[in-house]
Every structure is written in C-alpha cells, then in structure tokens.
Design a protein around this nucleic acid. Structure first.
Lengths: 138, 138
DNA sequence: TCAATAATAATAACGATTACTATTATAATC
DNA sequence: GATTATAATAGTAATCGTTATTATTATTGA
C-alpha cells in the first residue's frame, strides 16, 4: 500500500486531488480519470491510480469499497457512507451521533438499510513489532 | 448483486457456509475455496463465489473490502473490523460502545489506527421507487 | 548547469471475478 | 417410482480493474 512515500511536486497529483475535491459522487478511479482527462488530456490511468494511493496513504483522501467497486472521497469531515446495493450510489450521512451500527441512520438518508460494516485501517501488533525491529537495525 | 435469489438445497452451499463459520480469519473467496476443496475436492471456484454472493444477499454472512482484498465473515454478532494495511490481517473488536469513529478503539485491538470507514449497505430512494413500480406492474 | 531520481505516459501483464455451457441434482407433479 | 422443469454445478473462457514495466520527462538540490 505504499506506506513510505517520497513526495515531489506533481501537476498531475494536484489536478487529481482538486478534481476529486469538487466531486460529491465518490467516483471510482476510472470515473475520476475521465474528469482529469478534460484538464490534462495526456494523463495516464496508471498515474491516477498511483496518486490516489499516495493520497490515501497520506491520509489526504479516503478509499472505500463494497467488494465490487472501489470509490474515493476527498471529504475528510466526520461522516458515514451508505451505498446502494442495486445502483452502487454512495451517499453521505453527516448527522451522526450515538451508535452507527444502529440502523436507525437509514432514516436520515432515505435508504432501506440491509447491513453495515465498520472497518478501521491500521497496523497490527505483529507488523508494528516488525517495523520497530527494522528501525533499530537502520 | 443477485437480490432476488431462488434457493434450493445445495450440499456445496452448506459446506461453504459451515467451513466459513469455523474460521475466524475472515478468508478471501480463494482461501475459503482451498478449505472447501478438502471436503469437496471437485468443487468449482465459481460455485464458491456464487454461493458467497447468495449468502451475502441473504444477510447470512457479511463481505468486507479495503479495495484490495475482499473478505467474508460468518460472525453476525455486533462487532467492528480492524484491518492491517501492511499484512492485510483482519481482527475483530467486539467490545464496542459509544462512537466507533473515535479511534480510541485501537486500544482494544493493539492496532495503530490510521483511518476508519463506516459503511452501510442498502437500497437508495431511487431504486426503492423503481422496485415499487415494478411490483405494481407484475 | 548538472546530476540524481521521482514522476509520468504508454503499454503489457496479472489476477480476481464473472460469464458461458453442457451436465447433474433437486423438488414438484403425475 | 417415473417424469418434467429448472436451479445448481464443474469446467473453462472471457472480462476488466489494477499493477508492473520501461523509456522518457520533470523536479530538486548541489
């Protein structure tokens, strides 16, 4: 997942991030690629993927997936997502408080809620230990 | 995503579900396939995928993804997941209360938490309306 | 200006997932 | 129990999102 990332100025990365920030549709990499192409017609799809990964590793944007499509979001304000299992639309729910596993949040979005996944991302104890060993041997 | 699913008795599906229930490792489809093969050597990978989809649609199991690997979980008790961005391990956190977006949950798992995604799955207002139109025309 | 190297475009390769097709298993009806 | 309809399967081919590769370009620091 490209954790230790050298960063150098890049027009492509700037445009990718700027265009993502303008969008509220939680685009896939390919959808974003089509938008970025209007600004930078020669941009490569690989560049979009590489920079999105970097921005995710940075904590600048977030990535979400239901196992079918992977979508990106530049809105880092505290909110949850609700995804339609039929058309794959992702909507935001900003008004959160209490227990998100409680499906009463459906009322806020108009969705008929079927299930919920709460997933944290981080580094497990075993990998933490390994990275410490590595730091010491440097 | 195969919402309206005819269900007929199937040995393969029973074994797939039973083996998944025995596992706490949140296996991928292929990992589960290898396990199921020990019971049913002639089982096809497509059968594993098809039946996992049905079980997800049923609400019998859950599917989770970080955009890289898709993993399955037959434990339907209320809990959250925490995934290592390095080795891709997924651990369970059952002791939840309060606000899961608060990264203090990391203390329960020993993970160093980087980010969190809370995602509901359901049917959006637009698709709900379409399915109602369809019901009326039947 | 020059050297080192990160980032890129273009394209090839990969691999998880889905689609296809002939066959088999299930369940309902006779 | 035989017959029929069709869901489910095994085996395989095809698809497509993503990653890897490579030669070239752009950036940064000396």
């Amino acid at each position: 997942m490209n954790t230790g990332v050298p960063q150098r100025k890049s027009t492509q990365r700037d445009v990718i991030y700027q265009e993502l920030m303008k969008m509220t549709s939680h685009p896939t990499a390919i959808e974003l690629y089509e938008v970025v192409r209007k600004v930078l017609p020669k941009v490569s799809l690989g560049t979009v993927y590489r920079n999105l990964d970097q921005l995710v590793s940075n904590g600048t944007i977030v990535k979400m997936s239901n196992g079918t499509s992977v979508r990106y979001d530049a809105d880092m304000s505290k909110h949850i997502h609700i995804r339609c299992i039929i058309c794959d639309t992702v909507a935001d729910v900003h008004e959160i408080s209490g227990d998100p596993i409680d499906t009463s949040y459906s009322e806020l979005s108009g969705f008929k809620v079927i299930s919920c996944n709460v997933e944290f991302f981080g580094i497990c104890p075993s990998c933490l230990a390994k990275s410490m060993d590595k730091d010491l041997s440097d």
